[in-house]
């Protein structure tokens, strides 16, 4: 369908899981994708294959979203090469669990540095280009636990709740410039990050999913595609659950 034909898109945290699935989906829809990973990995060959086999193209851009200066340079590079930026997907994130009594200030800082401050930095840099072009779509990755909370995930859920709040605030501020800001809130998705909770806990949690199975990264990528494309042109400030009807 080429829903993103010629659109310039930056996807952070694109080495695996939801980020990688989003890069693939965007390339299939004709986007010019900049796939961010922290450091050179063996992904360049895969990105080249995506470029060859789809109407879009994929290029790597290496930086850590916690590094403000490196993030800025990456956006400057995109501006220099493409002259515009249509879509930002703030996907880079980390997850570590700890019970209430075990949440250290270091853990809180670690969660916020990547999941919140990293996203704020990216929004600030991306909107420098989007404000000028008076258009753009920003998609943040929140989480079902950021909305509902979850035992053992105080630090992570707080950071993802912050992502939901900043999405709504940014949507209100940036609407004046034609920039839409939305978030997806994945439930239990079959990624390396999710599997790190362990098999026992995973089996227990699947019982609480109405659709009876874990979600696939591709299913979250489809929701992200919806927000990135003009199909959602009249939608901003929304947090879309992609959770198979999960109850936490």
């Amino acid at each position: 369908m080429n829903l993103l034909q010629g659109k310039v898109c930056l996807v952070t945290g694109a080495s695996r899981g939801i980020g990688l699935a989003t890069v693939k989906r965007f390339a299939e829809e004709g986007a010019i994708v900049y796939a961010n990973v922290r450091e050179p990995k063996n992904l360049d060959k895969y990105y080249d294959e995506l470029s060859e086999n789809n109407s879009g193209s994929v290029s790597s851009v290496y930086f850590d979203v916690r590094d403000e200066s490196a993030s800025k340079k990456a956006v400057q590079r995109i501006k220099c090469e493409q002259g515009r930026l249509d879509v930002l997907v703030n996907n880079a994130g980390v997850m570590k669990d700890a019970l209430v009594g075990m949440v250290s200030s270091f853990l809180m800082k670690e969660m916020y540095e990547t999941n919140v401050q990293g996203g704020v930095n990216m929004i600030q840099f991306a909107t420098k280009i989007m404000v000028k072009q008076k258009s753009g779509s920003i998609i943040n990755l929140s989480s079902i636990v950021g909305i509902e909370g979850n035992a053992g995930q105080m630090a992570y859920s707080a950071s993802k709740g912050a992502v939901a709040a900043m999405t709504k605030t940014a949507a209100k501020e940036l609407a004046a410039y034609g920039i839409r800001v939305n978030a997806v809130a994945p439930g239990m998705i079959d990624t390396d990050m999710y599997r790190s909770i362990g098999d026992e806990r995973m089996k227990e949690q699947i019982k609480n999913i109405k659709l009876g199975r874990l979600g696939k990264p591709e299913e979250v990528a489809d929701a992200i595609l919806f927000f990135a494309s003009d199909l959602s042109r009249y939608i901003t400030g929304e947090i879309l659950g992609v959770d198979g009807g999960a109850v936490i």
Partner: peptide, 16 residues
């Protein structure tokens, strides 16, 4: 924000 965007564009810079 509009002013900052115009200045950045005019001088091809990105302000901190």
């Amino acid at each position: 924000m509009t002013l900052v965007a115009a200045i950045e564009d005019a001088f091809d810079i990105m302000l901190d």
